[in-house]
């Protein structure tokens, strides 16, 4: 790999496109993007995005790193895969957007710190990594309280009725969180994965 770490916090960085091609999941197919706009046209929530995927990809090529990683596009993707199915150049757009979101978190861009789905993903991952399973109570709890104690209480109360109904229909259990048997084996797997990732230049 001849990865060049992009210089953070610069509006334009000529090397950003190369970085994306070589380090982002599916980024190597991005070379073939011909800017047809089928992705942006297919996107069901394109209206809620700062830029459609097409424009975001052109921004990558133009080296507009900060604008890309602070764009809400990478957070608003709902993974419907409409764009991936329709892309005439077989660019895995969804993967690219997700990995760009990860990059934004890694490099500490402000919108990434605040993004709802970043908070949720963190809560989800905490549970999955700790127990090998997700516990709805813990995931939602951690997610809600990431907004602060007051906001956490407020959100929790607002969803009280739903929680009760879920318990009634046995969709959510009471008691200790479920966990897989070999939690220590899972930790070994995750440690190895982190090591591989670090070797590929993404850091942990």
């Amino acid at each position: 790999m001849n990865a060049i770490s992009p210089t953070p916090k610069r509006a334009y960085d000529l090397n950003f496109a190369r970085y994306v091609y070589e380090n982002i999941d599916g980024g190597e197919r991005l070379r073939m993007c011909m800017q047809c706009g089928a992705c942006s046209g297919s996107c069901p929530i394109g209206q809620q995005m700062d830029h459609g995927p097409r424009k975001l990809f052109m921004m990558i090529r133009a080296g507009m790193k900060e604008a890309v990683l602070t764009s809400n596009t990478i957070w608003n993707c709902v993974s419907c895969y409409n764009c991936v199915v329709r892309c005439p150049r077989k660019v895995p757009i969804t993967y690219i957007l997700h990995d760009l979101a990860y990059l934004a978190v890694q490099e500490g861009y402000e919108p990434a710190k605040k993004a709802d789905n970043a908070r949720f993903a963190k809560a989800f991952w905490w549970s999955a990594a700790k127990y090998g399973r997700t516990d709805e109570r813990l995931v939602t709890g951690i997610y809600y309280f990431s907004f602060g104690i007051g906001e956490g209480m407020k959100r929790g109360m607002a969803n009280q009725k739903i929680a009760m109904n879920m318990i009634k229909t046995k969709r959510m259990h009471l008691g200790m969180p479920h966990a897989i048997k070999a939690k220590d084996e899972l930790q070994k797997i995750l440690a190895k994965a982190t090591e591989i990732q670090a070797r590929h230049g993404k850091g942990a």
Binding site: Y12, R54, M58, M64
Partner: peptide
Amino acid sequence: DELLQQDVPLGP
């Protein structure tokens, strides 16, 4: 840039 509708200072 026509696709971005803005000026891009390409450099260095």
